[in-house]
Structures are given as structure tokens and as C-alpha cells.
Simulated assay, not measured.
Amino acid sequence: MAGLGEHITAMVRSHASGDDSAFYSVALQIAAREARQGHHVLADDIKKAVDTSRQVTPRSNVTKLAKPRGEVADLIETSHPEVTLKNLVGPSELVERLKQVIAEQRQRMTLLEHGFEPTHRLLLEGPPGTGKTMTAAVLARELALPMFTVRLDSLLSKYMGETAGKLRLVFDEVAERRGVYLFDEFDALGADRSGNDVGEARRILNSFLVFLEQSSPESIVIAATNHRSILDKALFRRFDMVLTYHLPDRMEARSVIKGRLGSLMKRLRWDIVDSHTDGLSHADLVKAAEASAKSVLMRGHTQVTADDLIAALKTRRTASIG
């Protein structure tokens, strides 16, 4: 947990920006910190003050309307996803773990009041198109939070000091503005490098690890990578949860396609379709389903056939290989 000085700084900034939710959350983090140190009377006083203030202060959904301003606006893209957990197709174990993250975040005040932090640092790894970015969107939607995607192209600089400074800006935002923060293609930042830049790369990575360790449990920080094998081993123990994504099996592929085609698909002969889905990602399957649907609708028909879908899957496979 961040030091008291950093908590106070975060409270001042959130107050200045009018973000009451962030202000109260930092106050409760301080209360939890005091409780762990045995200062139970002070911790109770802080929690009572927060409760009283919330009752007299008009509540507004500041997080949904929040957009970063100033220099950090060039580092973060804001969105408000609409995809829900029921739209995410994956192994039941992975879905259950995401449900656990959502449940802990929804009960975060209870956990913080007793000195426990909710799961808020996630590492997602697996092949492209298997649902990592979608997972961040799902968490944002389920928790009614904005999703902030960190632009690594703007974050990374050839000068270590500049990159570390930009990282601090991002994590200041994590503390001040509750949301889901996604570092996509994270291997660009977290790779275990060798060569002439190893010293600078190590210092940048160390800066990230320090900021991650101190990150506010009010927000969720997600790092997503297609290349687990090249990540620095020091990263894995710093995350609360590591989720592994795989290409869908045949039953999962069916679910993805059914979810996208909806009423356009009835009585489809899966026995001749299934083998054509092997080796394709969730994203490939969605694109193929969309292509088959558009082809059918433009012909004036209302039902996708097995032949329509197989043709689209073959085209998508060729495009993916190419």
C-alpha cells in the first residue's frame, strides 16, 4: 500500500478535481492502514466521517463521465464498454475467476475496512484474439467504470526519465480516477531484454513494478500480453492474478458464432462446420460470423447456412495465415 504522504497527495488531487468517489476511497485506504497498525479509534473516526460526508454530499456518477485531462490525456484513451460477462466465451474456470474479481471489487469497502485489498492487479496472457482486451471491457462494464487504455506508443520514450515520468502520471491517474486501466501489448514494456538497452529497460521495468505495487485498489490495472515467454519473471509475483487464455475448442467456437449470429442461425449443421473452426481465435470466429451474415443479408435471405459459414471461416483462416 502506498505511504501516507502519497495517500494525502491523492486525496488533495481528487478533491481538486471534484472526484468525491476517489476522495472517499483514499480516505478508507488510510483508515485500513491505521487499523492494521492498531490505531482502531482513529480508523473508526475516519470511516464515520466518510459515512457522514457521503450522506450529506450529493452523489454523482463521476467515473462514467470522467476523462483524463492535461498531459495524461495523451497517454490514455477513454471508453465506456457495453460488453457484459455473458458475452465472454471461455473456460468455466476463467469465467469464475473473473466473477471473483467482480465480487471483490463490489465488496471492496468491506474488505478495505478490515485491512484487505480486493484483487486489482491482473496479468492476462495468451494468443491474439482470445479475449484479453474483451476481459478488460467486461470488468469495466460489470463494475460501471470507465475503461482507460494506456497508449504504449506515447508512453515509451528513448529517455528512461521521460518514460518513468509518464508512468507516474498514469499511476497518479489510477489513484485519482477509479477505472479499469489496460496496458495492452504489455511485452513492449515488460519484456526481459538483453543487449545495450538492458540497463535502461530494467530501470523502466523497475519503475513500473514500484508503481504497480503501490497502485490504488480502487482501480483495476490490467496488463495483457501475447508473449508470456518473453516477460520478465519478476512481473508475475507482482500481480494478484494471472489469467491464461487459449484458442477456443469446438464447443466454445460454437458459442462464439451463435452469440454473433443470433436469429440468423437456425438448424445449422455443426457436424460439417466444427472442423473448420479449429485453430481460429475468438476474434477470427466473430469476423467470420459477421462476414457470413452480411453475405446472406445482401442476398435477401435471413438464414446463414453451413456452406455460408464454412466459406467465411475458410476466408478468415487464409487472412489470418497471411
Rank of each mutant, 00 (worst) to 15 (best):
Tyr24Asp: 05
Gln214Cys: 06
Asp249His: 03
Leu4Asp: 14
Val150Trp: 02
Leu65Asn: 02
Glu93Met: 13
Ala311Trp: 05
Ala164Trp: 02
Phe186Cys: 12
Lys132Cys: 08
Ile321Ala: 14
Thr305Trp: 01
Val210Cys: 11
Lys166Gly: 07
Val12His: 08
Ala136Pro: 02
Ala31Lys: 04
Leu122Thr: 12
Val83His: 06
Val56Leu: 10
Asp172Tyr: 10
Asp192Glu: 04
Ile76Val: 15
Met251Ser: 13
Asp278Asn: 07
Leu297Met: 10
Arg237Val: 02
Ala10Cys: 08
Ala27Asp: 08
Met251Asn: 14
Leu155Ile: 04
Ile76Glu: 05
Ala103Asn: 11
Met109Trp: 07
Asp153Val: 10
Val198Arg: 07
Asp153Thr: 15
Gly3Val: 08
Leu28Ser: 12
Arg317Leu: 01
Arg267Asn: 14
Tyr181Ala: 04
Ile204Val: 15
Val150His: 07
Ser281Met: 02
Phe211Trp: 10
Leu182Arg: 12
Thr244Asn: 12
Thr110Glu: 13
Ser229Asn: 10
Gly90Cys: 13
Ala31Val: 01
Gly259Glu: 00
Val304Gly: 04
Asp249Glu: 05
Leu139Ile: 07
Leu156Glu: 01
Glu252Arg: 05
Leu280Asn: 05
Thr305Arg: 03
Leu85Thr: 00
Leu231Cys: 05
Asp172Ile: 08
Lys132His: 06
Leu285Ile: 02
Gly300Met: 03
Tyr159Val: 09
Glu71Thr: 11
Leu139Arg: 03
Ser281Tyr: 09
Leu124Cys: 13
Ser154Asn: 15
Arg193Phe: 06
Ala49Pro: 11
Arg97Gln: 09
Asp197Phe: 07
Glu113Arg: 06
Phe23Lys: 10
Glu252Val: 03
His227Tyr: 10
Val198Phe: 09
Gly179Trp: 05
Phe23Gln: 04
Met251Ile: 11
Leu85Asn: 00
Tyr24Thr: 04
Val62Ser: 14
Ser79Asn: 12
Ser194Glu: 06
Ser79Val: 14
Ser229Tyr: 07
His80Cys: 10
Thr9Asp: 15
Glu125Lys: 02
Leu123Arg: 07
Phe239Asp: 06
Ser157Cys: 09
Ala306Glu: 08
Arg228Leu: 10
Arg13Leu: 03
Gly115Gln: 05
Thr84Met: 02
Gln29His: 09
Ser292Phe: 09
Pro118Ile: 09
Ser207Asn: 11
